[in-house]
Nucleic acid binder design. Structure first.
Length: 555
RNA sequence: GGGCGCGUGGCCUAGCAUGGAUAGGGCACCAGCCUUCUAAGCUGGGAAUCCCGGGUUCAAAUCCCGGCGCGCCCGCCA
């Protein structure tokens, strides 16, 4: 239930009586709640906007939803009736109607899909954090969400890893890392370096890829074991930052379907030295390039083809598909969408693109070995949090829980708090910020609220008219925004809208906390304030859940 | 060279879609606030040519055109 729109519609209705169909806008802080800038009426009435605003303000009928409708210069400002506001917000939040959204059917959200050649690094981490958060918000909005990870076990990168494991691993080598992703990445790094310098190695890797696609049992076995192991390392890291993937789809399982798909695309195909590509000139689609290769000269499949097969597979489940991808995939995605349009016109594909996370001195790359691993960042955050809480009298178990929750939530938030299309330059102190606009700030605020509730018994009754302090009213208004925030995050496919909301909600609660004592107030005020704190914790729980930020009762 | 995205105090960031009222936050810095619901908090302060130049408009950070800078893409890699 969208509470703010109830008030907005009331305002629009009042204006309809003047023949004004332009909708009111949200007013700036200090100018009421909604406003109608009257400039656009100036020509029609041949009067200056301020005069028009004044005229309307004099004639307009108020109703129970508004206290005051006044002209301020050329603006007509609407002030919401506070009692009506507190009544509606408290009631609908406490009985959870504010969290009810229409059911919207299935959607597949693909995210992360990092090559299983090594540990997740901080550059890659933007994908699961944005993807998982988007999936959570879609769920909240009423979608039935399935998240998927496309496991690239068929391409050149993975063949490089397999070749490396087969040829470079020896029993004398110390493999101190306990996680496979960290243990095996060295072979990938060495093998790709060798392939660059040595034509024979490169040829062998291509041979490996070919044999793997052809289904050679020994290689299949090796891949299943070792890639599976790297992947379990990656998913363990993901779990540490509260990311759970519903389904892993291995690329190699799709290769058998590719022949059939290609036969349907025959009329758009061209051949060059035995390699096949889709010619976008034949599709009459203008992209930055025309040739999208499906098969190599040696007959092995290419990512573009496998991705077509994968998306058709997704489309069997639902036509609504959302891909979370780095901005480097934009051209690929546009081409993919065009091809899928031919194969299944009902497919509704959307993409959430994000820009890269780089290091101050340039790109992060597993292959080049200059990446900051996500596991290391989490460990570092854990240490930092431990340092802060070690003298606060928690037992070891609690300490570990709190420090881990703080570290992982802080990392998630530092990514989510930036608009997706802005690039991020990684800095340790920024990624692990615990003050100001950060997850720990939000978690701390929540813990404060919980602490109040834990110190009192509440009868469940309240008189909403007791809430009159400006910081009570502001908090109520912000709570009322929740459904709008969810909807906007979904419509714009932008989790950061939710992240910004979490911060403003926490900030506003802290203002309330400072000015409006709960437990020491007279009984009626106390009960109303408890209701408000309760409402706040309910909304905040949903917000934190949307963002994948852990909730702590104490910290 | 072409395409896409970004450019806001020392650093980071919101606002830009749908032009409007003092450009909102955070970090860092300075000065304050813990005998009263958790100081990971709160209050106050200094700090901005909204990349540059044109244009549209009563009004431009926001729209249009032209530059500049940065990132990404233009692979029989993914």
């Amino acid at each position: 239930m969208d509470i703010m729109s109830i008030f907005k519609e009331q305002a629009n209705e009042l204006l309809m009586k003047f023949g004004i169909s332009k909708e009111v806008e949200r007013a700036k802080e200090g100018f009421g709640d909604f406003t109608l800038p009257c400039f656009f009426l100036a020509k029609k009435y041949r009067k200056n906007p301020a005069e028009i605003a004044r005229d309307i303000a004099n004639k307009i009928e108020k109703n129970e939803y508004f206290d005051k409708i006044e002209a301020v210069g050329p603006y007509l400002n609407f002030h919401i009736n506070q009692k009506k506001l507190s009544e509606i917000v408290l009631k609908n939040t406490l009985d959870e109607k504010i969290f009810q959204f229409d059911k919207k059917g299935k959607v597949v959200v693909e995210h992360t899909s990092a090559n299983p050649t090594g540990p997740l690094h901080v550059g890659r981490a933007r994908n699961p954090i944005i993807g998982d958060t988007m999936a959570r918000i879609l769920k909240e909005y009423g979608f039935e969400v399935e998240t998927q990870y496309f496991v690239n076990d068929a391409g050149l990168q993975v063949a490089t890893l397999l070749w490396g494991i087969k040829n470079l691993r020896n029993e004398n080598e110390q493999e101190n890392d306990t996680k496979c992703d960290h243990k095996l990445v060295r072979y990938y790094q060495r093998a790709s370096k060798m392939a660059k310098e040595d034509k024979i190695v490169e040829k062998e890797i291509r041979e490996t890829m070919k044999n793997y696609e052809a289904g050679e049992p020994e290689l299949r076995e090796l891949a299943k074991k070792e890639i599976g192991c790297v992947l379990s390392g990656i998913s363990e890291t993901l779990r540490r930052i509260n990311v759970e993937i519903d389904k892993y789809v291995w690329e190699s399982t799709l290769i058998p379907h590719t022949r059939e798909i290609v036969s349907k695309l025959k009329e758009y195909l061209s051949e060059e030295n035995g390699a096949y590509y889709i010619d976008f000139k034949k599709l009459n689609v203008k992209l930055q390039k025309d040739k999208f290769y499906l098969y190599r000269q040696d007959g092995t499949t290419l990512y573009f083809l496998r991705d077509i097969a994968y998306h058709l597979e997704k489309a069997k489940k639902t036509k609504k598909i959302i891909d979370v991808m780095g901005e480097d995939h934009k051209l690929h995605f546009n081409a993919l969408r065009e091809v899928l349009k031919l194969l299944d016109p009902a497919i509704d594909m959307k993409a959430l693109f994000y820009s890269f996370v780089s290091l101050p001195d340039g790109k992060m790359s597993t292959r080049r070995g200059n990446a900051v691993y996500l596991d290391d960042l989490i460990d570092e955050g854990f240490k930092k949090a431990m340092e802060i809480i070690k003298d606060r009298g928690y037992d070891t178990n609690e300490e570990n829980n709190i420090a881990m929750a703080v570290a992982t939530s802080a990392i998630r938030y530092s990514i989510l708090n930036v608009q997706e299309e802005k690039k991020i330059v990684f800095k340790w102190d920024r990624a692990l910020s615990f003050d100001g606009e950060s997850a720990p700030f939000i978690m701390y605020t929540y813990a404060r609220a919980i602490s109040i509730l834990s110190k009192t018994e509440w009868c469940g009754e309240y008189n909403h008219e007791k809430l009159t302090h400006p910081n009570e009213i502001k908090l109520l208004k912000l709570l009322a925004e929740y459904p709008t925030v969810v909807r906007e995050s979904v419509e714009k496919l932008s989790p950061y809208i939710m992240a910004k909301y979490a911060y403003s909600l926490a900030t506003q609660f802290n203002q309330f906390y400072r000015d409006c004592p709960v437990l020491s107030s007279d009984l009626n005020t106390k009960n109303a304030r408890i209701a408000l704190v309760k409402a706040f914790t309910k909304v905040m729980e949903h917000v934190m859940n949307n963002l994948g930020i852990s909730r702590l009762q104490k910290m």
